[in-house]
Amino acid sequence: MKAVVMSAAGTPDVLEVRDVPMPKVENNADVLVRLHAAGVNPIDTKLRSRGNFYPDRSPAILGCDGAGVVEAVGSGVQQFKPGDEVYFCKGGLGGPRGNYAEYAVVEEWSLAKKPASLSFAEAAAAPLVLITAWESLYDRAQLQAGQRVLIHAGAGGVGHVAIQLARLQGAEVATTVGSPEKAEFVRQLGATVPILYKERDFVEAVMEWTGGEGVDVAFDTVGDDTFFKTAPAVKVYGDLVTILEPKPEFGSLKTARLRNLRISLELMLTPMMEGLLDAQRDQAKILSQCARLFDENRLQIQLSHTFPLEEAAAAHRLLETGSMTGKIALTMG
């Protein structure tokens, strides 16, 4: 089968299209999926530029997100059969198991039925950002109806999904964006207060919106100094969730401590990296619930660009320019 592989870390040019052995059903829980599309995420570009998590398993196929049709199943598989359309987040962290390829083998517990209302490319763009936003808002921050939440980079991959999930929970949303066009986009998703962060201090805007109290929950998808600058925008005893590692060279936790903030870290890859099967099943359940929301027209994914599998390097270059609206996917023809 054709796959995009990397043998060393570097620029997008290290991504090469090669013929590689097709994966096979080897275990009872294995499901062979003929991939129609793969999502492209920032984790992919980071692994490509810095090196993957398993450097001894080279060459590696990137791509955590996939969507396709079941081709074959192991003897113990009960929930899926050949012909089923599925989507998932599994693989792509190093070695031969990734989704920049024509086929992938995925364990049954990581799969969910693809939303019928989405194309394969749209479905492939969704899993990682859906699980990240869901776990951050619902599990880490325990967001409640009537609360106010600040979401950074609301027009981005995680951000645009997080706005919708917050609104579905009955929360009000303020979000930072980089342009008037993105401000209009997030309004359409349900954001009450788009903040053009290049023109106005977001803490000032939040305090004006909340009458000087601060938001109940802040969700940081940007990291670096943005994480530390967000603390004054959160109410005393509020929640601050980040998907990036807080690094001391960018700031201090003094304000967060004074405000008694509950700080949570979110990495949706942990169940995969640590081999936590129950947690992987829980994430598949999130995808199943989101599939229902998609098909009820209560949730949408913004797919901004698609590239043929062979143009994975171009997809990486586009993603690394920053300021993306929505998501990118690769298609397999």
Rank of each mutant, 00 (worst) to 15 (best):
A141T: 11
A141R: 06
Q142I: 00
Q142G: 00
L143W: 05
Q144K: 15
Q144P: 00
Q144W: 01
G146E: 07
G146L: 12
Q147M: 12
R148A: 12
L150V: 10
I151L: 07
A155M: 06
A155I: 04
A155R: 03
A155T: 02
G157V: 08
G157W: 05
V158C: 04
H160N: 14
H160S: 12
A162E: 03
I163T: 02
Q164S: 08
L165V: 11
R167M: 06
R167Q: 13
L168I: 01
Q169G: 15
G170M: 08
G170S: 10
A171I: 07
E172Y: 09
E172P: 00
V173L: 04
A174P: 13
T175Y: 09
T176V: 13
V177W: 00
G178Q: 08
S179R: 06
S179E: 01
P180V: 12
P180D: 12
P180C: 11
P180L: 09
P180S: 13
E181R: 15
A183I: 14
A183N: 13
E184F: 02
F185Y: 14
V186Y: 07
R187Q: 15
Q188A: 14
Q188L: 05
L189E: 08
G190I: 14
G190P: 07
T192P: 01
V193R: 14
P194N: 14
I195D: 02
I195E: 00
L196Q: 13
L196R: 07
L196T: 06
Y197R: 06
K198G: 02
K198R: 13
E199K: 15
R200C: 02
D201W: 10
D201I: 06
D201V: 05
F202R: 03
F202S: 08
V203R: 09
V203D: 09
V203C: 12
A205F: 03
